[in-house]
Design a protein around this nucleic acid. Structure first.
Lengths: 292, 292
DNA sequence: GTTCCGCATGAATCGATAG
DNA sequence: ACTATCGATTCATGCGGAA
């Protein structure tokens, strides 16, 4: 089954280069949130919207190469406003990826319950992002039972409560069941979720800023992988995807351009799973681990 | 200000032809849910996905002509699954409409709280749809105060205050019918909504399953028009957009291909607002009105 | 040990100001 | 004219300290 690959590691460098060092078809799931157009100027140079597709396509080609045939790719992304309009680079990217051979199997909607505040004359606060589900084949691994949610409490009450919930915002108390362990709900009626995920972003962690909440990669990892499988995030950032993989007994490979993020991610990982992380290695950042 | 236009009427026929009879820049808002690709085979011939954009573009060109410069176009649409993948015709349509001159100002997400049941091996139930907000100019009419909602923890705070709780309960009872009136919540604790709409689909209309719930066009009509403004729906169906307009004291113009939908819509409209509808005329369906 | 309140913090966006 | 920077706007969340 191909050559051995080092896992539970965060590579330091540009994923355009690092990905080339990975063997073919070694990854079960890719979950990532690439820098949006004109964002992260200090790291990826703030790719302009009209160059975004051209910048990203070589990366998705490599991602497709390292993904197993039955694997999945979850791409979290959102159009930024460009000159008063939503940018079209996301649509263009998806269309181009299909020409690369990717199948656009599904689009999940991440509803950000706590979105960024603000007021503008022509739009409201942006409270959702795309999570494109791309695959190499029509047949792929999917374990729907792993993400079932309890019925009743939240789903049924909402439907009964029409007078109040028509246009009133989402009930803040409904946790939607995401992130709950199925074991916690044994004995209750479980139903399959929909393709809309209700999750709040994590804001109060002063040490690091994660682009998506831990529950987001956890949900997709449960849905598309089994224990021991390998999860890849080519834009690892503060290590949220790696944390999710470790929590669920999956292996991870991360790539990150900024050295300080790697040190941060490893410290968090070690704090959560000291035994496991002690065995892992981090390229170019061995010193960092001495801190703890 | 252009020639007079007959309002509160549902035209019978193909919107590709009927739209040409409308004058330039006479409509304040367009809200519609066009037949999705391969749907409604009996009416629009079941436009195949790969022909969808070519079929729809002449219509959007006419829509752009009849829309006032400061008006808005809300396009509710969703990608159908085509051969295991999400179809790309929606993305291609939006990109093509921009080349027509439309501005893609925003994309609202309609979260369908009670979505269609079912189970598939490769996807979950589809619980959201696009509502593209397209405009002719960067400056357009928008009345954000008309759709404000109570603050997130509003309910919790009030539950601790008994006297105020009773007040709230009374208010919600008295208005327990349709559309949250902003007046109900005036006093404090109102915030602007986000671009995610949480609405339940209307279940089991005996004669016809409405494409979208009444609250959906009502929300956009409140947001983008004032009383007396004109709302157009070129795919009127069972008349949901017209009902929304009437409820909010706006005028409507509808177009529908199927005669039986027009009769149904007019009967519903008359039942809800007999006085108003009595004055209205329905092209090609005068006989229907004699029934009541 | 609870509950409550204050406060910092976000993949934001617009419009004005400055170079 | 065109781009870069900055202040103003705004609210759900979770933490820490106080009662």
């Amino acid at each position: 089954m191909g050559k051995q690959i080092e896992t539970n590691i965060i590579h330091h460098g540009d994923c355009r280069r690092i990905l080339q060092t990975l063997p073919d078809e070694c990854v079960d799931l890719i979950v990532t949130s690439p820098p949006y157009a004109d964002r992260r100027k200090h790291t990826y140079g703030g790719v302009p919207p009209d160059e975004y597709v051209g910048w990203f396509l070589p990366i998705t080609a490599e991602l497709r190469r390292v993904l197993k045939p039955e694997g999945s790719f979850i791409l979290n992304i959102k159009e930024r406003v460009v000159d008063g309009e939503r940018g079209t680079y996301v649509m263009e990217l998806v269309l181009a990826m299909r020409k690369q051979g990717w199948l656009w199997t599904e689009e999940y909607c991440w509803h950000k319950k706590n979105c960024y505040p603000g007021k503008w004359p022509n739009r409201f606060r942006d409270a959702w992002e795309h999570c494109y589900h791309l695959t190499k084949q029509k047949e792929f691994k999917m374990f729907q039972e792993a993400v079932m949610v309890p019925m009743g409490d939240w789903a049924e009450k909402r439907l009964k409560n029409l007078s109040k919930t028509d246009l009133v915002r989402d009930e803040s108390r409904s946790k939607s069941g995401f992130g709950k362990r199925v074991a916690n709900w044994i004995g209750r009626d479980l139903v399959y979720p929909t393709n809309v995920l209700h999750l709040a972003t994590e804001v109060s962690n002063k040490n690091h800023s994660a682009v998506f909440p831990l529950e987001l990669p956890m949900w997709f990892i449960r849905l598309f992988t089994q224990k021991g499988d390998l999860v890849l995030d080519p834009f690892m950032g503060s290590g949220t995807t790696a944390r999710a993989a470790v929590k669920l007994d999956r292996k991870y490979v991360g790539i990150e351009l900024q050295q300080e993020y790697i040190g941060l991610a490893n410290r968090v990982l070690q704090a959560e799973q000291p035994a496991l992380i002690a065995e892992s290695k981090t390229a170019y950042s061995v010193k960092k681990r001495k801190k703890r």
